[in-house]
Design a protein around this nucleic acid. Structure first.
Lengths: 208, 208
DNA sequence: GTCTATAAAATGATAGAC
DNA sequence: GTCTATCATTTTATAGAC
């Protein structure tokens, strides 16, 4: 048994989760190898399987961990602003900040969308579902306040998430193709992406 | 040796390519198994490797095949319209039509973006690079004609591709979360996505 | 071109000592 | 909790007969 404070077992669990997240992000579910994750954690294969009884359980734990964090970080951003438009902007900013703070986690989620849309669809990862619903509520709210253009909320939600995710994921590729100053700096690039999204929503005025 | 007309060898090659595309789309590079592809083609493992000497070569062939098709289909859409805005719309429509006509191919490309952004970035798949450059040229062209709002073309390009790809990829997930009529029918849904994108570009007037 | 047989390596997982 | 040893399976790829 271990105490609650400074729990070595929990620390190791945490370390394995972080390493697993990295490997699943880089190689995908099938491409990631338990032995490699274990080795980097300073363990052998069976020791890792002592903490997480199977590869799929480990993967699900990583997914839960990521989704919970994403939901918490974006929900926290809503505590400040009051006006619907500002709340929506804050949510978007928090989403982008999260993508940049945890690039591996972001990549795992993107993969999951392709690998296992059924699992996401059935919302077996509840926090992720709550994240999406929160964004939809914000869009509807801002539309009622006249701060976002009319139109189906689901379509707008898809545009927001798609444009932001793509901007983040595809930056290295575009940087190679177009050597513009915009793409050189990640901060500037993602700010431009956010600006385009907010213009699309009608949150900011269009340049003439 | 085989003749150019009605070449049985080429037919088999084609069949393998199509099946491989399906498997890579569903399971990813690591998840796809040569034996499974061979079996569905009515062959054994070594016979498949007679046509494509290794798994990675087969994968590259699939990628080349996909990228070439995408470039051809979107480039063909430009032969009709003259005005920059109409040309951009035609390109977008062709892109969406292609995604729906070849869902497996679309999924392979999305995976490739995550798995191997280096390969895409280095434009080892030349047709894909030409596709992206064509879209950028159209955006610049439409901006000069005053039909698309000002702003960095790369950012607008990323928004267009990201929003459309996401709409297509994530539809099953959103359909599960929000049971709206919009999401029930793929045609209606993708039309809504296109409309949002064109509104974002300024190609169509915003509803008030 | 297709097959059988087989190699060579890696993987996820279990048994059981300490 | 971590280890060694091992299993069972799967995977890509080769050798060589037909």
């Amino acid at each position: 048994m271990s105490t609650i404070f400074s729990d070595r077992g929990a620390d190791r669990r945490r370390a394995i989760l972080d390493l697993a997240e990295q490997h699943f992000a880089r190689f995908g579910y099938h491409g990631a190898a338990l032995s490699a994750i274990a080795r980097e954690a300073g363990l052998r294969n069976p020791s890792l399987l002592h903490h997480f009884p199977s590869k799929s359980k480990l993967y699900l734990a990583v997914l839960e961990d990521i989704a919970t964090d994403l939901e918490a970080r974006t929900a926290a951003a809503l505590s400040g602003p009051q006006r619907p438009g500002a709340r929506l902007s804050a949510f978007i900013a928090a989403n982008v900040a999260w993508m940049r703070a945890r690039p591996h986690a972001f990549r795992v989620i993107q993969r999951e969308l392709l690998d296992n849309s059924e699992r996401v669809a059935q919302a077996q990862i509840l926090p992720l579902s709550r994240f999406v619903r929160a964004l939809e509520a914000l869009i509807v709210e801002a539309q009622h306040a006249g701060e976002v253009a009319a139109g189906p909320p689901a379509a707008k939600l898809s545009l927001v998430l798609g444009a932001l995710a793509y901007a983040q994921a595809v930056r290295p590729t575009l940087a190679q193709m177009f050597a513009t100053a915009l793409l050189c700096d990640e901060t500037t690039w993602m700010a431009a992406a956010v600006r385009e999204v907010e213009m699309a929503l009608g949150l900011v005025r269009r340049r003439r």
